[in-house]
Design a protein around this nucleic acid. Structure first.
Lengths: 138, 138
DNA sequence: CTAGACCCTTGATCTAGGTCTAGAGTCAAG
DNA sequence: CTTGACTCTAGACCTAGATCAAGGGTCTAG
């Protein structure tokens, strides 16, 4: 198989593209297992940890929280119901993103109307943006 | 003009739909001017403060940060360049929202592909979601 | 007058996801 | 053997936007 050269925390931080402190933080948070230690106390990692860190980073980019990622990691190790669970979580995340996009779209449209209606000069009382923000309704 | 009945902090909190603590917080943060006080130390507000609180809430709903809102409030009081500034800030916010939507859309599409490609059962090694997350590239 | 609702201040706490500091020990190259 | 880079721990600190607690004073209806 692949060589099991032991890597220091600095090395895996470098190759996974995360900060050293972040790795120790993930360990505390249960996203990474406690690694072997040298007699000096130095942590020793292998290549698999780099993959795991990349997994975490990518999932984070997809908008998963660390809690959700912890769950995904547990599921991904489960040969039985793991895949179903992962797909479910991903689908849920997808739905949440769709909702967030729709919400932003509403905000965008509202703001866009105001910007279009504002001449950009004149008295504050005539600015539709200021008027809309000061309106008592809602 | 309108009656200048003096309102307690609880009353304006109620009618603006924010918490009492939030009002004091906004005062500390410079979003609200320090109000008059009764001899007892109680804050006394007028109707204009309710409008200002609503302004803040609406701007927040549009995604402005409190820093930006502080700026908007300052601009809205400026008869000279105020309206131009407000329109600029609103346009900038609109652009930021557009970027955020585009970014979410990219994430959404990527995730959607993975979910569609995943059968939802079988071995973890065959799950495209897990495979994509573990991939070393990027 | 009293009970209960309301208000005051200062300062701590919360979420999420880290980031930084201090002080001490370890490792590898020259 | 020394020097400089690296690592260790415990715990404080950061952003943003509040929210809460403790301990005490005030207001008002009955």
């Amino acid at each position: 198989m692949t060589t099991q050269a032991s890597l220091t925390i600095g090395r895996i931080a470098q190759s996974a593209g995360v900060a050293i402190d972040t790795i120790r933080f993930y360990e505390r948070e249960g996203l990474l297992p406690a690694p072997r230690r040298r007699p000096s106390g130095y942590r020793e990692y292998d290549q698999a940890t780099v993959s795991r860190l990349r997994f975490i980073r990518r999932a984070k980019d997809l908008g998963f929280t660390l809690d959700e990622i912890r769950e995904l990691l547990a599921l991904s190790a489960d040969r039985h119901v793991g895949v179903e669970g992962v797909r479910e979580r991903a689908a849920a995340r997808l739905l949440a993103i769709d909702e967030r996009i729709a919400e932003l779209q509403r905000v965008r449209d509202g703001l866009s109307e105001l910007v279009d209606a504002c001449p950009g000069h004149g008295a504050p009382e005539d600015c539709p943006i200021l008027k809309a923000l000061a309106e008592p309704n809602t």
